[in-house]
């Protein structure tokens, strides 16, 4: 049975509204997680790539340039994901932990 058949149009609208709008604290959390934690993630990603790719023979400057290019491709989907997830608290925390983890990893490398 398809998901569509399980959900009446009115139920769909109500549920969608709860995902899209949510209460103000949830909206703020989505925003902060997407842009804020996302920033930590891409900063950590650039640093990790800049530190690890040279061990595979890529010059450090090139590794950092590549990391910066990729970071911009990653940042937008992160923000879009945080705007659309049905579990913003859990996913926002996971994103924050990922950012902290990447930064810690970059420091270790």
């Amino acid at each position: 049975m398809s998901v569509y058949r399980e959900t009446s149009p009115s139920a769909l609208t109500d549920r969608s509204r709860s995902i899209a709008l949510g209460a103000a604290p949830v909206s703020i959390w989505r925003f902060l997680s997407g842009f804020g934690s996302g920033y930590f993630v891409i900063s950590g990603l650039v640093a990790v790539l800049g530190s690890t790719l040279p061990t595979m023979g890529l010059p450090k400057g090139e590794a950092v340039s590549l990391g910066t290019l990729l970071a911009l491709f990653v940042y937008v989907p992160i923000c879009l994901f945080m705007f659309s997830t049905t579990r913003p608290w859990r996913d926002g925390l996971a994103l924050l932990m990922a950012g902290i983890g990447l930064i810690a990893l970059a420091k270790l490398v």
Binding site: G44, L45, V46, A47, G50, T68, A106
Partner: peptide, 16 residues
Amino acid sequence: LTFGFYYLPWGVAEPF
């Protein structure tokens, strides 16, 4: 991208 190095100051400087 033009200002990528300015927007990610820690990330780009850390490997150096």
